[in-house]
Design a protein around this nucleic acid. Structure first.
Lengths: 149, 149
DNA sequence: TATTGTTATACTCTATAACTATA
DNA sequence: TATAGTTATAGAGTATAACAATA
């Protein structure tokens, strides 16, 4: 046996990474569920909190999502008053997006949940090893150098 | 700024791993596309090649997929004559699944494509670093100690 | 009554193309 | 004519519950 494949699937780094990533995604998703936010919602709030008010176009670029997908995310966030859109007076085609104070509060709760989730996932790794993992992941060659999400 | 979130999303190891995993999954999927196999199809062939004939139940366990999902995978593989099901004479409820020689050939092509894909993704990592990454990923705590896919 | 495999269904996430309004 | 954002639609992938055949 084991003639053609080069062994079991999980000897393949590509598969291993994809699978562990999917498990992590599911866990993160479930952890964020306490606030009803998806990872993309949470990432959006994080960017808004981190970078301040930006246009939707710029935000879509940061998140590496299609502008049309960002619309739905912002609709949700705005409905829950976690973020706010306003027209750019200088160019009325543009929306300027910003986080609200309720958004910042929710982000903090999210952040706590995320930290607990990570501490479970990476419980067997030291802080050093987590940083090592982070560094290695950041050196994977993506098609566009973007993050996606 | 940057008050509530603890920085941009990609400072979060959970998000980073989920996102890099998704990118890797997409690349692997596209690379495997040359044979028309999905990652799960390919993993199935790998397990069959590696472990020899097994029951569907056992195979579902190895792949960590629901038995009902394995049905569709095996239907595809059997249609293309890459794998074969036969009744277990000892217990006619059981199917014994095995890879065909055409399946082994396809697996080899798949394997080559996968290697090339991995070499692109991990081009900036040395062999040592790839093994390091693999080791770290294997020490992530999954809910059930299973691989999923 | 329990187990093996199957069918049918529905849901989540995402990708894409066509549309509206402003410039 | 080009750009910013929006709407509508379709697709892939997956999860789940009910079902049939055999033990």
């Amino acid at each position: 046996m084991a003639t053609a494949s080069g062994g079991a699937p999980m000897n393949r780094l590509g598969f291993l990474l994809a699978v562990r990533g999917a498990i992590t995604d599911a866990r993160v998703r479930s952890a964020l569920g306490v606030t009803g936010l998806s990872p993309r919602h949470a990432m959006t709030l994080m960017y808004l909190d981190d970078a301040g008010p930006v246009s939707q176009q710029k935000l879509a670029e940061l998140l590496a999502v299609d502008p049309s997908q960002l619309v739905a995310i912002l609709n949700d966030l705005e409905r829950d008053e976690l973020a706010r859109r306003r027209r750019d007076p200088a160019d009325r085609r543009r929306h300027i997006v910003e986080i609200t104070s309720a958004g910042a509060t929710t982000l903090q709760i999210t952040s706590t949940a995320l930290t607990r989730c990570e501490d479970e996932l990476f419980a067997d790794l030291t802080q050093n090893e987590r940083e090592l993992l982070s560094g290695l992941l950041n050196r994977i060659r993506t098609a566009d150098g973007q993050y996606n999400c």
